Amino acid sequence: MEVRTIKVFTTVDNINLHTQVVDMSMTYGQQFGPTYLDGADVTKIKPHNSHEGKTFYVLPNDDTLRVEAFEYYHTTDPSFLGRYMSALNHTKKWKYPQVNGLTSIKWADNNCYLATALLTLQQIELKFNPPALQDAYYRARAGEAANFCALILAYCNKTVGELGDVRETMSYLFQHANLDSCKRVLNVVCKTCGQQQTTLKGVEAVMYMGTLSYEQFKKGVQIPCTCGKQATKYLVQQESPFVMMSAPPAQYELKHGTFTCASEYTGNYQCGHYKHITSKETLYCIDGALLTKSSEYKGPITDVFYKENSYTTTIK
């Protein structure tokens, strides 16, 4: 009895394709271990004539594949690729409408935090270190965002349907971005203890939790000093293409032309909904596939993004 075979390709990165001759009487799992086709788990399936010449994702289970996976995804987590594939199996079914010149995501599976993050990423200057993220990001900007969303979920250790947080998501993504040249110098002034300067680099240099107003941050924000008295913390120097200011959701007025974009969060910790506000020729609110415009805006804002380049204080 002759062994019926077909020729397929296996890959971990969709760049390096490895030619395989597979036995049609055995499952993919018996031949390769966990195997995925377009995100779908085909591990328990036997090869079919229609699979001839198709590319299958496999887990990096030998040295060659491990090197290829690390170079593309910059992670050695053995569960990463499987999590990416199972997320992709959902995100490829989502709709990605162009809204006001940006790629958004039609609401499904509690994905409003991903839509808000995706919209924000198209408006701030950011370059990702893992080629996987950078490639998928370019495709997302062009309207094909399924891979990018699935990668975000995998890097953030999230599953489809789980509630997510924009600030946490951005923080994970910033860790995989090139923020080497970003720098922030802060000064804390206390009447009792004097003053202390701190220099922050990388992710810490672009994120701040405690106030939404970048102007206020430049002037000074009140913080408790270690001595128990009130101290003032203010920005001395900022070198970065953008800054992200966050605070627990509270009524906040966004003035046209003073910011790049913002995240609105309605609801409580267990259950809520994100919308995205962007400042173009007027203010726009993007909620999944829905767009509304207004000249002014007041609502429960939790993150505001500002364009920056270089700032030095005039406070002496």
Rank of each mutant, 00 (worst) to 15 (best):
E2T: 10
V3M: 10
R4L: 08
R4A: 12
F9T: 11
N14T: 15
T19R: 13
T19G: 11
M24H: 09
S25C: 12
M26A: 13
Q30L: 12
P34W: 15
T35F: 11
L37A: 12
G39Q: 09
K44T: 12
P47L: 06
G53N: 09
T55M: 08
P60Q: 12
P60R: 05
E71N: 13
S79E: 00
L81H: 10
G82N: 14
M85S: 05
L88F: 06
L88Q: 04
N89Q: 15
K95R: 08
Y96R: 01
P97E: 15
P97M: 00
Q98I: 14
I105F: 02
Y113I: 00
T116M: 04
L118R: 06
L121A: 08
L121K: 01
I124A: 01
E125W: 01
F128S: 05
F128P: 05
N129H: 10
L133V: 04
Q134C: 08
R139W: 09
L151E: 05
I152D: 03
I152F: 03
L153Y: 15
K158Y: 00
G161W: 07
L163T: 15
R167P: 00
H176D: 04
D180I: 07
C182A: 09
R184A: 09
N187S: 12
T192C: 09
L200C: 08
G202F: 03
G202S: 03
E204L: 04
E204C: 02
G210V: 00
G220Y: 00
C225Q: 02
T226D: 13
Q230L: 15
A231T: 02
V236K: 04
Q238I: 01
Q238A: 03
E239F: 06
M244P: 02
S246G: 00
L254E: 05
K255D: 07
T258I: 10
T258D: 12
S263G: 00
Y265C: 00
T266E: 12
G267M: 14
L283S: 01
Y284R: 05
Y284F: 10
G288T: 00
A289D: 14
A289T: 07
L290C: 12
T292W: 08
E296W: 09
Y297I: 11
P300E: 14
D303C: 06
Y306I: 03
E308Y: 03
N309T: 15
Y311R: 05
T314F: 13
I315V: 15
